[in-house]
Amino acid sequence: MKAGELAQPLPTVRLDDSALDAARLITAHGLPGIAVLSEDGRPVTVLPAADLLRALVPGPVLDDPSLARVLDERTADRCAADLARRTVREVVTKKDRLASVDADATVVECAALMARTHSPAVAVLGRAGGDLIGLVTAGHLLEVLLPEA
């Protein structure tokens, strides 16, 4: 099976979109991350859901997780409101190139790239690094690779 057959046409966001919109798309579609496009529509990177969680949690709590116990629900609500004021560009921590394959890549090539780049998904691009065909998520790839019980 080839990447082009596995690719799912999933939602995307642009660098200047709201980080909250990205989070909502990820949750609505049950995704481990979302493809990020540049202003001209070219794939840039995959924004993992974990990066959005990192953006939600106040810095001092990231440094000292024991502080999380003292935060109340109102503080959590303010954290979510803060996400609405930030762009995808501001929360992307993975600044390296997009994990991508062409449509003819094998299942093993996709798995190796995900493992090497720690990416929850790989983008499947058309010929010669062209347009985004879709994403292959780690969960979907595991479904294909694992034998049925």
Rank of each mutant, 00 (worst) to 15 (best):
A123I: 09
T93A: 08
V88E: 01
R78K: 08
A49D: 15
T93I: 03
L135Q: 02
G126R: 14
S38E: 13
A7V: 06
A123S: 07
E5D: 10
P147M: 03
P43L: 07
G139V: 08
T45I: 10
R89S: 11
H29L: 05
P58K: 03
S38K: 06
M114A: 12
L47F: 03
S119K: 09
V57W: 06
L141V: 05
I26M: 04
L71V: 04
L37T: 06
T75S: 10
H118Y: 12
G59K: 13
L142N: 08
A68V: 10
P58M: 02
M1A: 10
K95W: 14
D96V: 11
R86C: 01
L135I: 02
A50T: 14
P120S: 03
T117R: 15
E90S: 13
D64H: 11
A111V: 06
P9V: 15
V91S: 04
V88G: 00
R85I: 06
A111P: 00
D131K: 11
R14K: 12
L53M: 14
D51V: 06
A149W: 14
R85K: 14
A99N: 01
T117K: 14
P11C: 04
L67D: 14
I26P: 00
D102A: 05
A50V: 11
H118K: 14
A19Y: 04
A19W: 06
G4L: 04
R54P: 07
R69A: 14
T27N: 12
A55F: 07
T12K: 00
V61D: 06
D82G: 14
A112V: 13
L56C: 13
V92L: 15
D64W: 05
L37S: 01
A3C: 05
T75D: 11
A128Q: 11
A103N: 06
G4M: 03
A68Q: 05
G134N: 05
L71D: 05
L142D: 08
L15C: 04
V61P: 08
G59M: 10
A115S: 12
P65R: 11
T87W: 03
A99L: 02
A7S: 12
R42Q: 09
L67A: 12
L31P: 04
S100C: 12
A28Q: 13
L52K: 02
V88N: 00
R42F: 07
R116S: 06
Q8P: 00
H140A: 15
V36C: 00
P48T: 11
P60I: 01
E148N: 09
L47C: 00
D82V: 06
G139F: 09
A80Y: 11
G139L: 09
L132M: 04
H118W: 11
D21H: 10
E148T: 13
D16S: 13
A138K: 07
